[in-house]
Amino acid sequence: MAATSVHQGNPPAALETPKIAVQDLNLWYGSFHALKNVRVDVLPRKITAFIGPSGCGKSTVLRTFNRMNDLIKGVRVTGKVLIDDHNIYEEDTDLIRLRKRVGMVFQRPNPFPISVFENVAYGPRIHGETRRRRLEELVEKSLRATALWDDLKDRLSTPALGLSPEQQQRLCLSRLLAVEPDVLLMDEPCSALDPIATARIEELAVELSKDFTIVIVTHNMQQAARISHVTAFFLLGELLECGETSQIFTNPKNEKTEQYITGRFG
């Protein structure tokens, strides 16, 4: 995985217009100020890793990108999250279209308790696809993209919950890909997996980053170092440092970042 050696030198923001631009984002859970003036850019077709100790707000930032925080009561947000130059916190944002474009996989694989096929076909179906042929094509394409097709093509009608955890997480990715998003949010996608499965999901993420913008939240610093192009370090609701992964891990500018990545706290 030579992913970390891409574009060395220049700060990444100078190269391309960001896919997601977070501007002065503040978020409160009730009276708790969880995010403080966060500014961060996410580049298209790259993997951006959010790292930081528990409770630092990295997952919260991630969940603003598809507005999943809206589900939590008492959440208040100020600032902007621009995706393709459109502020998704604008009143007129179509949440259904937003979530179709910005998909998410979770810490624990959460396939629905229905068949493999129905899991993948779920997204297209709720977005109005009824043609059987088209659904079958989408299911095959999505399962191929996560390297599940060869294992599961004869077991499409078996229950998804009977799969191994790794397969379940891959299935959740396939389920996302079937709605043809362009951003993939991964909230500690390997935390429920063993090391071998983790390595394989990482490989898959690198593979997918050719076509998708990926943001991954991780507790695992080796994981961030292995697969991401850009790393952002959060602490207590603030973005302390963001830069190319190689720079963050070899030559961090912020003292706290250095202490965290060298394991002095976390």
Binding site: L71, R97, L98, R99, I126, R175
Partner: peptide, 27 residues
């Protein structure tokens, strides 16, 4: 029914009604 099913469905762009009818009810 685990909250993670609802989250998974909402995150795919499903409406609360679609989530209730197609995910929560079968589960």
């Amino acid at each position: 029914v685990p909250q993670s099913y609802r989250e998974g469905s909402i995150a795919l762009g499903a409406t609360p009604w679609q989530t209730a009818w197609r995910v929560v009810l079968p589960a």
